[in-house]
Nucleic acid binder design. Structure first.
Length: 241
DNA sequence: TGCCAGGTTATCT
DNA sequence: AGATAACATGGC
């Protein structure tokens, strides 16, 4: 067990904001499966208590080297972003494993956060997320993933390589942008989905095809646009509910 | 019951 | 290029 001192960090925001799904609540904290590890994390004020992984991994995974307040300062100021930051500015974009991240977001089309999470846990229990156990489409379908089963089979075939991502069935602009942002460290990436589309239309007066939106957002928010995306996504979603 | 859910693809014009 | 339906499943 290790206790790390953290600043401007919130574990709940970080895990519940929709970037990562392989966790369950346990003992006042979270049981987390990431990068092939199985560990526990809990927060008490400025302490992050980890059990089952070394400190170096935790610092990397939770991106404790990031400074959200410094990022905000690099962005054009506006009231929406300020509110979103106030509500969710203590989340960190986790450094995810590309394969695990790809699998998770292949489950996301026309789904929702609770279901993605449920599907992913079922998938891990059934296959260990090993590609060789993801080649039987009918078996995957029985886990409740629906039409996304064929996406997983394709992913098992092609893998999650940065250059070959787009060859995976089920990987379009949005899923690709998510993997680039959450696993490959492309922090300027701004994935466009139903929620960020609404944010850009209603809060920023932008209405154009997704391709143009993602470029505009990347340009507008700058090199840390991915963080702006996550703050806005989490905040706007909460507001709308 | 009927609609919608962190999209992508095939199939039109 | 831009619009539209289909894709499985579950929750409300």
């Amino acid at each position: 067990m290790r206790r790390l001192t953290v600043r401007h960090f919130d574990l709940d925001q970080t895990l519940c904001c929709g970037q990562f799904f392989d966790w369950t609540s346990e003992d006042g904290g979270y049981r987390i499966h990431a990068s092939g590890r199985d560990f526990h994390a809990a927060q008490q004020g400025d302490s992050l208590i980890i059990e089952g992984v070394d400190e170096a991994f935790a610092r990397g995974f939770f991106a404790l080297d990031h400074d959200p307040e410094a990022m905000l300062k690099t962005m054009p100021r506006d009231p929406s972003l300020e509110k979103a930051f106030k509500a969710f500015g203590r989340l960190r974009l986790l450094r995810q494993d590309p394969w695990e991240c790809l699998v998770a977001f292949l489950l996301s089309p026309v789904s929702n956060q609770p279901r993605i999470q449920r599907n992913l846990l079922a998938l891990r229990h059934a296959t260990g997320l090993e590609p060789e156990n993801m080649r039987d489409e009918a078996r995957l379908r029985r886990l409740g993933v629906g039409f996304r089963a064929s996406f997983l089979v394709s992913a098992a075939d092609v893998g999650a390589g940065k250059e070959t991502l787009r060859r995976v069935r089920g990987v379009g602009d949005k899923v690709s942008d998510c993997v680039m942002l959450f696993a490959y460290g492309d922090y300027g990436s701004f994935p466009i989905d139903v929620w960020t589309r609404r944010v850009l239309r209603r809060l920023y007066g932008r209405q154009s095809p997704d391709k143009a939106l993602r470029l505009w957002a990347r340009e507008h928010f700058g090199p840390w646009a991915g963080y702006a995306q996550q703050w806005l996504y989490a905040w706007f979603r909460q507001e709308e509910r």
